[in-house]
Amino acid sequence: MSETPAIATRALSKTYKDVKALDNVGLSLAPNRIYGLLGRNGAGKTTLMSILTGQNFADHGTAEIFGHAPFEHDPTLARLCFIRESQKYPDDFKVFQAFHAAALFFGNWEEELAQDLIRAFNLPVKRRIKKLSRGQLSAVGVIIGMASRADITFFDEPYLGLDAVARQIFYDRLVEDFAQHPRTIVLSSHLIDEVANLLEHVIVIDQGRIIIDAEAEELQGAAVTVTGGAQKVEEFIAGYPVIHRDALGSLSSISIRARLSEEQRDRARAQGLELTPVSLQQLVVRSTLNSQKNQEQTTERQAIK
């Protein structure tokens, strides 16, 4: 893989007053893949994306897009598209005028796709953007992102206010268009279950730190919940890293990070233990909670010192 990464960051840090928005972030994203940038609200997703698109500045570290620092570099910026979740539009703009502007700046703009999506989302193009509902506003962002066909497209929580049908339209069209026109897509989301199957690679950020940076297939089936009699469950999970424990009377339900072999599964079944897969969403939630617990413990230790 000597190919220039689409996105590369080294030791990227950014602090707002007393909040660490980004803490020593090092990433390398290969071109033409779909990435998931997951994490809670306020974890640092938007800050990271706005630094990557030259809209914001890091305190330390470097960010490169196809080997170039994006800041004020028009040829590099022209390859990016980043519509924020809270994107502002000129007050006097009508919907079609925003698309008109986007067609001006994005060299690969695909008007047919835009029109198709406008119909699918049932978007009133002659209405002022100011007057749109939250969902319609999200749809404008999604359409610009999709039709821009930019080399790197960032979708920042693109589904806010969109109903289930509209979200499905978005996911369907994304898969369809990506198959025809592969490009680098960074999908920032906290609705993880909905996007899990689209992702090739998963990056989880929490309190500005990258806590997971792994191929999606490494995460699928990488954890399992074992449920059954407390004694038997404890015996079965001995030696595996535990990510979560639940207990109900003598019943125990413990999630462990493990990829079980067929033999192990058979053994569990024979012992009357129930095995259920841990979804990506659960895995991320558990990892996030654990990382926060660790963080608090470290802070406490430091406070004691």
């Binding site: 893949r33 779909i34 996911y171 369907d172 898969v175 369809e176 990506f178 198959a179 025809q180 592969p182 199957n197 689209l198 992702l199 090739e200 999606a216 297939e217």
Partner: peptide, 15 residues
């Protein structure tokens, strides 16, 4: 085809 599978199951074409 790959793309038909991707579209049908709503998964990444590479997968």
């Amino acid at each position: 085809s790959t793309n038909e599978f991707a579209a049908f199951y709503r998964i990444n074409p590479a997968t």
